[in-house]
């Protein structure tokens, strides 16, 4: 089996402070994991804010270089990408989805512009009909069509629809890996499931692997194959989703697991009453 993505002992440090009070922030410490090419999966990175999960995502996307360690995508070191051609080929295979769909799209630009320019740039299409056909095809994968999106602005659509369009845009170049950084945290819970179900379909029907970064443990449990839990830059627990989230062994993962309120009024109100007593 060949590795799609291989992180080995990746570290990222940031220098903070000025001339006199310089210190080093270890944002990501010794992170290693491998995604197989033949077996598309949803790989979830869980952690609270400041745990280093977004820095990890940025390194996988090539936006950030690791301080030490290596990230290899299909055998090639991501940090060694130099030429424009190589970079374009890499970007076609690894696509991002961002947290806030309302900020990801310029409010003064129609949404089809993003889709068309992605098709032109990555697929090298010149012909208008071919660009539109490619766009429509990827919109069909997310349950939309070009007719619904053409000429629309971001404020005309709901957060769930925008996030679907973001997924459609990421699908245009035919990626092997999608890095989704908190894709549902700005979408409300009733639409959340439609995005999460979409990831499942992408994995099963298109064979796309997904790195799903989140702090929402219930959707993580629902869709993930494997999970790592990060805390202050360290991976504190890793393994199959059912084991890690169902039976966490590390102290921090247990705390995280217990912080999730169940959607059941009897149990949830009992938890709050228990907290109240401790007050």
């Amino acid at each position: 089996m060949t590795a799609l993505l291989e992180l080995s002992d990746v570290n990222k440090d940031y220098r903070i402070g000025g001339f006199l009070d310089r210190s080093t922030l270890h944002a990501v410490k010794h992170v290693s994991f491998t995604l197989e090419e033949e077996k598309p999966e949803i790989f979830t990175v869980v952690g609270e804010s400041g745990s280093g999960k977004t820095t990890t995502a940025r390194m996988i996307l090539g936006n950030e270089t690791p301080t030490s360690g290596s990230l290899r995508f299909m055998g090639k070191d991501i940090a060694a990408i130099r030429s424009r051609k190589e970079r374009l080929a890499f970007m076609a295979k690894v696509q991002p989805i961002f947290q806030n769909p309302f900020e990801a799209f310029n409010p003064l630009t129609t949404l089809d512009y993003y889709l068309f320019s992605t098709a032109r740039r990555f697929l090298g299409l010149k012909d208008k009909a071919a660009v539109e056909a490619a766009t429509d095809k990827s919109l069909q994968h997310v349950g939309l069509s070009l007719a619904e999106v053409r000429g629309r602005y971001s404020h005309e659509l709901s957060g769930g629809q925008l996030q679907r369009i973001a997924v459609a845009r990421a699908l245009i170049p035919g990626p092997k890996l999608i890095v989704a950084d908190e894709p549902v945290s700005m979408v409300d819970s009733s639409l959340r499931m439609s995005i999460v179900n979409l990831f499942r379909e992408l994995r099963d029907n298109l064979g796309v692997s997904i790195i799903y970064i989140t702090h929402d443990l219930s959707t993580a449990y629902y869709i993930s194959d494997r999970v790592i839990i990060m805390h202050k830059g360290d991976v504190v627990e890793a393994g199959r989703a059912a084991d890690v989230l169902g039976n966490p062994s590390h102290e921090y993962s247990r705390a995280l697991r217990n912080a999730v309120l169940p959607p059941d009024p009897v149990i949830a109100s009992a938890i709050i009453r228990e907290k109240l007593r401790a007050f």
């Binding site: 819970s189 009733s190 499931m193 439609s194 219930s218 449990y221 629902y222 169940p262």
Partner: peptide
């Protein structure tokens, strides 16, 4: 209510 995910349950939820 039916679409709420729960830990320990991976049955497919139908989104609206």
């Amino acid at each position: 209510i039916a679409s709420l995910p729960r830990i320990g349950d991976t049955r497919k939820r139908v989104a609206l």
